[in-house]
Design a binder for these strands. Sequence first.
DNA 1: ATGGCTGTATTATGGCACTGATGCACCTCG
DNA 2: CGAGGTGCATCAGTGCCATAATACAGCCAT
Lengths: 117, 117
Amino acid sequence: MNPNRPHSNRPVYLKLRDQIAAAIIDGAYPEGAMLPSVRALAAEQGANPLTVAKAYQQFQNDGLVEVQRGVGMYVVKGAAERLRAREREAFLHEEWPEIRSRMRRLGLDPADLALSS
Amino acid sequence: MNPNRPHSNRPVYLKLRDQIAAAIIDGAYPEGAMLPSVRALAAEQGANPLTVAKAYQQFQNDGLVEVQRGVGMYVVKGAAERLRAREREAFLHEEWPEIRSRMRRLGLDPADLALSS
DNA sequence: ATGGCTGTATTATGGCACTGATGCACCTCG
DNA sequence: CGAGGTGCATCAGTGCCATAATACAGCCAT
């Protein structure tokens, strides 16, 4: 069962979005650096340029990335920390409660699993 | 940002499926009891009968629910525990690793959040 | 037997998200 | 200026989701 939770069946542009967000937070794309071009990342990931563009889109809207038309997209100063803070808020308020109750229902305790990995 | 994680934008039949699964595990639909009829649940949830049927479908396939045609659908004996076990496995192997690394990236520790709620 | 309740099959339709192909506007560098 | 790199807009195609309207098949109490 369970053709359920967001795994591989998740939209490509969202997977890319998460992947990029992680890269920014981890510093793989340092502040001030230029992100891979739409076409380059598309080729590397085997995706369509538009799909990549759609993933990038959300970062521009949030002002985490600056677009220099005809040049490229650059990571804004302070983007990593802002992004981390925002994602943390979102996680705590929207994801964690559901996960928590779900674990409770399944008879699992976060404290126990904290050790693994 | 984040029109992301599976919340309200999730397909209706999957939300129903989760809701029913939770009810079975929690014993709201005890073993041997009859589930709400397709039409009844549809009316109550403001959904289409076929959508409810689609949600029920998966439980039959897994043998968690027994259909008595013309009568109704009944929760099979041992369904709650089987369902819990199955979901727990799925959660631990497919969801938790991602959640764990995600929390690590955001600087969160499961042990700390275990207390809340 | 009949009415009323079950689940199920069929077909059609509208909407929406995702993906894709092409071409255009813009910038930089030689 | 021209070549090659950017991002971006437009149009089209595809598939899933949800709904709807019927109709059918089975069971049961009256």
